[in-house]
Design a protein around this nucleic acid. Structure first.
Length: 881
DNA sequence: CGATCCCGCCACATT
DNA sequence: AATGTGGCGGGATCG
């Protein structure tokens, strides 16, 4: 029947006249209904039992004219209900009862009948799970709403979730395109990958924590990255390439939330996620304070999402009994493996690039990049991610180290994160547009960065991991790539598929540690210099309200930070506590806390956060590359990259600096990301922790531009990408004076000329090291083993079970270590210290780093602006393809 | 009484 | 300005 409707659905003219309507109206006259909630509507109409008839009517109603929801609701609703439970209940009110009604009525409303889950089922029932490719089904929201007898609002809830899984995509104003589940596995796969990056550790942490801590080691699964962010990496949906913009608003948090929620399941070993944990994890930001209310709201939304997912047969409700008692939870009952790829036991298969094929044809949300068409989406949530075609640069530093591969990925991830962060920041600051606004920035460089992977070292080991990376890369790339490559000429970029990676987001907060290492914060001061350097950046700075930044920082600092010192213990405790809604904290706390300490000097304590990222190990490229190549029409450049990746061996990259030896040791590459706080808002820096201390300051002068350890990104312009850098060796920490550091950095920047003329967006220095304060001494405290672990990048974690322990921490709050930890942390830092942990060091540490990373920016800015337009256009564009 | 989550106000975006 | 979207949370139901 539905189908029927559909066919007809076309806007027929409203038939209002039809008999039915009349009856309805009668029954439902608004007057009464409005007030009395219930059911009047229901069965008021006597008429037709034939559902179809009703449908028709409804449909007609749906037509634009009708749009009144009220009417519709009332009218329509009945239909569905009637079908199901026919009893038209309605009525107790006599009036209503037309002929048949009578007794049945009462039941009506049970809430359940109106539940979103049921509604969703009805909705899904209308469309084939696996529609023929040929037929494209469009869904009219109005129509559906009327048919199902609900308000549109509810349909949005459903559609948003479906959209997050790409079962549908928005085509136009009130219209969605039904894709069915063809792409579902792909989407899930993508989400899984992204999820591992984002939440892997977290989940592990939580879950384990509950159960045993021990295995952690063993597992490999999720160790990856700390969740730092929440961003929707996946937004594949639209990779608006250019746009980036997007996003401005809060866009679809429901959609994003939905993806994240799904990721949680996919990442979870048990495949069971409790609501409270999900809520905690999903509450992004610094939640600290987490208001109870916020938590509550989050949970409510999760129920909405869960209802839809349940209807899709992807999850089911269960209860978990834990210490505290039984908690509501959901279990994933959907596919675990995803076809497209080969899965490996562990996980990823080489095929990482899932996207390509399918998507293109269809409305496919994701991909696009290649074609450049993409666009549907509205939100650009990830813009940040966008890759950029424009320009990327690589900086290479270290070529040879075996680990480079990882680095690449790592870099890419970072990049992604940065993008995300940027967005976030924007949002936070309230300056939504920050990025975009600056037209100036528009230059490619500004917005996004891309990393180039170095070709280099490869370890056998890596392979295992690789898959993930690759996947990620693929994804990210997709997302990233802007359709038009704009002018980047520089190196090769990959059009779409770069191996780029997923992104990590850094919280707005200031500092992060990536991949373990020490770090320091500082920077603020330095920032200015950089700012100057970057012309645009400067502007950007101006634009960006420092205040905002600070504000944020302050918040963070203050509230959440609280417990710092006792990280370990405290954390654990907290973890355990978590019941409280607020609990989110746990992770974050640790997070912040460290920073607090660390920053002491630096002005804002709050500002600095550290996080560890782990680079992915795997050399992503190979498998992917092949696939991709075949699949997409990538540019030669991409291929080049690929090739490089594939053949990591070659050192061709030539990077200078790092000594391989150093490299060899698997350090974790550490980066520091400094948020621009106060005045500096404009730039973000990343420093590699690893490098020798001196490096930074000295380096500047000494080092060639490339070598620069730090990266500065103009925050404003870029939108805040935070980061990125190549790690190098760890260095002892010399405390480098910030100022000096800065200077150096700035110099490099300039010198390097990296900055593309336009904006000097980003760069990465590899070599240098910065580690100021901490004593590098690797004294590790025996006692604090954990910390070290923390430092380790997630990667390590993977590789090493040991690390894992900490991982939780890491995940959540990698940061902490910083100050306090020093020792401990330091330990990790030092290669030696690291060593212990790393079994498979290579993976873990990208340490060697030298990755050449290239960043690119996109022109995104401009593009972004177009959002609305894009939406519409997008589709059209794609379709042709 | 806690778990669920319907309902729809209302802000913001798009037309 | 009208309409589309969708965040959000009060408060009703369910169990």
């Amino acid at each position: 029947e539905n189908i029927f409707d559909r066919s007809r659905m076309a806007p027929k003219t409203p038939i209002k006249n039809e008999p039915v309507d009349l009856s309805k109206q009668k029954g439902c006259t608004p007057e009464r209904n409005p007030i009395t909630p219930i059911k009047l509507t229901d069965r008021p109409q006597p008429d037709p039992w034939t559902p179809t008839a009703n449908l028709k009517i409804l449909v007609s109603a749906a037509s634009p004219d009708m749009r009144d929801r009220e009417k519709k609701k009332e009218l329509f609703r009945p239909i569905e209900n009637s079908e199901q439970s026919d009893p038209p209940d309605s009525l107790q009110y006599d009036m209503v009862d037309d002929s048949t009604v009578d007794e049945f009525e009462k039941q009506r409303p049970s809430r359940k009948q109106k539940s979103l889950g049921l509604l969703c089922q009805k909705f899904l029932a209308r469309y084939p799970s696996y529609p023929l490719s040929t037929e494209k089904t469009t869904i009219s929201l109005d129509e559906v709403a009327s048919i199902l007898g609900v308000e549109r609002r509810r349909i949005y809830d459903i559609v948003n979730v479906l959209e997050s899984l790409h079962l549908v995509s928005r085509v136009a104003k009130n219209q969605y395109c039904w894709h069915g589940r063809h792409n579902l596995s792909q989407t899930l796969k993508t989400l899984q990958e992204a999820g591992e990056l984002q939440y892997g550790e977290l989940m592990t942490f939580f879950q384990q924590k509950e159960q045993d801590l021990e295995y952690k080691f063993g597992e490999r699964k999720k160790e990856t990255i700390p969740d730092t962010q929440d961003r929707p990496l996946l937004d594949f949906s639209e990779p608006d390439c250019t746009s980036a913009s997007a996003n401005s608003r809060k866009d679809k948090s429901l959609r994003i939330m939905s993806q994240k929620f799904v990721m949680l399941f996919l990442v979870s070993k048990t495949k069971i996620v409790t609501l409270d944990i999900a809520a905690k994890i999903l509450i992004e930001e610094t939640q600290d304070t987490v208001d109870h209310s916020k938590f509550k709201t989050k949970v409510r939304r999760l129920y909405d999402i869960a209802n839809v997912l349940t209807s899709l047969g992807l999850i089911k409700k269960v209860h978990v009994t834990e210490e505290r008692g039984r908690k509501p939870a959901f279990k994933w009952i959907g596919p675990v493996e995803f076809p497209g790829k080969t899965d490996e036991p562990r996980g990823h298969s080489p095929t990482s690039d899932p996207l390509p094929r399918m998507q293109r044809g269809v409305c496919a949300p994701f991909q696009i990049c290649a074609t450049g068409k993409q666009r549907f989406t509205r939100h650009a949530s990830f813009n940040g991610a966008q890759p950029c075609e424009g320009t990327r640069r690589k900086v290479s530093s270290e070529p040879n180290s075996p680990r480079q591969e990882r680095q690449d990925e790592y870099c890419s991830k970072m990049i992604n994160l940065a993008a995300v962060c940027r967005q976030k920041i924007e949002e936070d600051t309230g300056n939504p547009s920050t990025t975009s606004p600056p037209s100036l920035l528009a230059l490619p460089g500004d917005s996004d960065f891309c990393v180039n992977p170095l070709p280099q070292a490869v370890f056998p080991v890596v392979q295992a991991d690789v898959p993930n990376l690759s996947l990620l890369n693929g994804v990210s790339s997709q997302a990233l790539h802007p359709p038009t490559p704009a002018a980047s000429k520089t190196e090769n970029e990959k059009p779409t598929l770069l191996p780029s990676q997923p992104f990590l987001c850094f919280p707005s907060s200031s500092l992060f540690m990536l991949c373990g290492g020490l770090q320091e914060n500082n920077s603020r001061e330095t920032l200015p210099a950089t700012g100057e350097v970057g012309n645009r950046s400067a502007e950007a700075q101006a634009a960006v309200p420092p205040a905002a930044c600070q504000k944020r920082s302050s918040h963070e600092c203050t509230s959440p930070s609280a417990p710092v010192d006792e990280e370990p213990a405290a954390k654990k405790q907290t973890m355990e506590h978590n019941d409280v809604p607020l609990s989110l904290v746990v992770p974050k706390k640790s997070f912040e806390s460290p920073k607090a300490e660390s920053t002491p000097g630096s002005g804002c304590t709050s500002a600095v956060h550290l996080e560890a990222l782990h680079p992915d190990l795997a050399s992503p490229a190979a498998p992917e590359a092949t696939h991709k190549e075949s699949t997409k029409p990538l540019d030669s450049r991409e291929q080049e990259k690929w090739s490089q990746n594939k053949e990591p061996d070659e050192p061709s990259a030539g990077k200078e600096h790092t000594s391989k030896e150093n490299v060899n040791q698997p350090f974790l590459p550490q980066y520091l990301y400094v948020q621009p706080t106060a005045g500096l808002s404009s730039f973000n820096f990343l420093l590699s922790a690893n490098q020798a201390s001196g490096a930074i300051g000295l380096a500047a002068s000494q080092l060639p531009s490339l070598s620069v350890p730090c990266v500065v990104v103009p925050s404003a312009a870029l939108a805040s990408f935070p980061v990125v850098c190549s790690p190098t060796v760890t260095g002892p920490l010399s405390p480098v004076p910030d100022g000096s550091f800065t200077a150096a950095a700035s110099l490099n920047f300039t010198v390097s000329g990296l900055a593309s003329p336009p904006p000097p967006p980003v760069f990465i220095g590899t070599t240098a090291v910065v580690t100021p304060k901490v004593s590098p001494a690797p004294l590790v405290d025996p006692q604090q083993p954990p910390h070290p672990a923390l430092h380790l990048s997630p990667v390590l974690a993977r590789s090493c079970g040991a690390v894992k322990l900490d991982s939780p921490l890491c995940v959540g709050h990698p940061v902490t270590l910083l100050k306090l930890q020093q020792q401990p942390s330091s330990a990790p830092l030092t290669p030696k210290s690291i060593r212990p942990a790393r079994h498979e060091a290579f993976f873990k540490t990208p340490g060697s780093l030298g990755d050449p990373v290239a960043w690119k920016k996109n022109e995104g800015n401009q593009t972004r602006s177009a959002s609305s337009v894009q939406r519409r256009l997008e589709i059209s564009g794609t379709s042709p393809d």
